[in-house]
Design a protein around this nucleic acid. Structure first.
Lengths: 165, 165
DNA sequence: GAATTGGGGCAGCCATGTTGACCGATCCTG
DNA sequence: CAGGATCGGTCAACATGGCTGCCCCAATTC
């Protein structure tokens, strides 16, 4: 890093930033839209999927943990969890260690639905990973991780605690 | 090295797919939320920003081109463009080559606003690019591009037509 | 001349976010 | 053990930004 450096390296100039903004927007949009049809068949929306996803990811997490992940209000989450509960996709049990807390888990049918939805995401994302190559995947993760404020990263890393490998 | 090969390479297994899903969600969320405050100061929302952004990106594009990029309905876009027009951020002029088409452009104040918003995005994304490194940026682009259906990629590549270098 | 395209509009609905207030159960601490 | 903090739930009311279905006009193309 001791050579004369242009004010900004090439990859930091406007076109490269705009490219990132656009690809992030379109990539994210297409991935999320890819499961909308499956969701609406069940009478659910994207908000329901996000809750299902994180409950599947961290079975037994509490309402306040889920609130922190989703960064929405208690009201909004309440509606979503109510719907999922009515449809018997999610169950809540009282945490014996702190009886104020509710531990959220998926029922069998909730788990089956989440697995179906995940399978659709998996197909798209694994195709993208394969086409782009293993190296690219590392870069993809690295840039996205840097977009997340430091204060949030811990919460997100905890999601991966149980992953083997 | 003739060991039994797992069905999928390591980077295609469930934890790696979930990691991508989560980073994409959180990265996208944080980037978009980072300009919400600036927007709401102007009485605008994210939908307005998306329109501003693409009009800034391709000055003179038509309503139907913008519709195709945003993938929303004419009604939804109509409301947004109406707001932007009322606030004198966007202007429409008739395309002389096909007098049915309206060419969308930003007014001076529209361009100034878009530049402010872009500057906030630029700061976050260029920090992320720098921290992750140039190689990572290439991977980030590559994976995202693969998430976009082939049928859409042309439209998106056209956005970059005017970029120098 | 007829059909298509580009743009625009109305009424009404739905999903999902927001605020602010309030409550009860439970836990923790002085 | 009393008082305060935390966790969860709920009410009413509202904003944003999608959607559908239907209709219209002007301009272009066949």
């Amino acid at each position: 890093m001791a050579a004369p450096i242009p004010a900004s390296p090439l990859f930091l100039r406007e076109p490269e930033i705009r490219r990132g903004v656009e690809l992030l927007y379109f990539g994210y949009s297409h991935l999320t839209r890819s499961i909308d049809e499956q969701l609406s068949k069940q009478g659910l929306g994207r908000a329901h999927h996000r809750a299902l996803y994180f409950i599947a990811r961290k079975p037994g997490l509490s309402v306040s943990e889920l609130l922190a992940l989703l960064a929405i209000t208690k009201q909004s989450l309440g509606r979503v969890l109510g719907d999922l509960s009515d449809r018997e996709l999610v169950e809540t049990t009282t945490d014996p260690k702190d009886r104020r807390r509710r531990m959220l888990t998926l029922t069998d049918s909730g788990a089956a639905l989440e697995a179906d939805l995940f399978e659709a995401l998996r197909r798209r994302l694994s195709t993208a990973y394969s086409e782009a190559g293993q190296e690219a995947v590392g870069g993809f993760w690295a840039v996205l991780e840097e977009l997340i404020p430091l204060s949030e990263r811990g919460r997100i890393q905890k999601l991966r605690e149980g992953d083997r490998s």
